[in-house]
Amino acid sequence: MKYGNHQSNLIIHPAKMIPLLSSVLLSGPGIGAEICNGISSKTIDASMSLNAGDTCTATQTITLDSGVTVPDNISLYAPVVRFFSPVYLQGNLHIAQSDPATTPSPLNDTGITWCADDSDNDLSCPVTGYPGQDAEYGRDVTHNDDSDGHAGFSFTKLDAEGNPLPASATSWSCVKDNVTGLIWEVKTDDGGLHDKDDLYNWYSTYPNTNGGGMGYADDDGAICYGYDPNDPATYCNTQAYVIRVNQAGWCGYHDWRMPTIEELRSLVDYSLPSPGPTIDTDFFPNQVNSQMWSSSPDASHPLGVWLLDFGYGGNWAGGKDMSQFFVRVVRGGK
């Protein structure tokens, strides 16, 4: 298994313990790597022992000798692993997931609080002959409280350091979804790195997750903040954006990633009509009513990736072939 290319990021889900259950052989020319967990970092040395509490910075580099064999039964907490050169792993790297039986991931409700018949909406529930509709079940019934997001949604605003703010706060940088546990980037309208209008190509160098096609690294255009044609780190693609956000940090976290299509869908408020945006803009301002990239490739085509269209709430597959769409990164979850 080959992990990584120049300046690439291997994002392992945060808060997931990664016991190395069997030997892993790391080899490759001049391996450099850093492992960060956002707040503190662990340093890899030749024996892969970890020193808790080391501060991780974007420039910290750990050099591994070629052919280092990692002993058994070492546990890592490492959401972000960045390899600066190709790394070859032999053997099995077991990523232990928490038992799903004990930790279900609740789904967000849809936001729909009215019933319908064949031709009309906004009817009181129940409607005779149309039993058991969306609006009669779920958090939109049991937790219908608009103070923390429309109907069953429950959001908490976070400041630039990740501290919770009251819902009345007028300035915030991230939002925690209290149902799904995910923490979301809030877009800005300041022309900076997080600006809502910035466009990206879809790009991923990870063959296990990129659907069989990497996409485009460079659109040859200044479609995002700080684009420099001479600096690949500033190219306007999704992978470079995630690395830039993690290097700079946002809301105190360095383990941001692209959301899956289901994670994007979790934010959709289906009660809102097109042209949208179909999201609670009290918590997610600067949301374009347009398509946003997910991390989820379309299985039917190596150039396809799922998009969530916040203009009406549906999802469809867009092309990695230099298509330009918007991005909102996420962290946390399972």
Partner: peptide
């Protein structure tokens, strides 16, 4: 699905295509 279309689609309801996974 049990989810009716929003107010500009009052004669529609959400479905999911299990061919590709598209919602419509």
């Amino acid at each position: 699905s049990s989810s009716p279309g929003a107010n500009n689609y009052p004669r529609y309801a959400w479905v999911l295509s299990f061919y590709l996974g598209m919602s419509d």
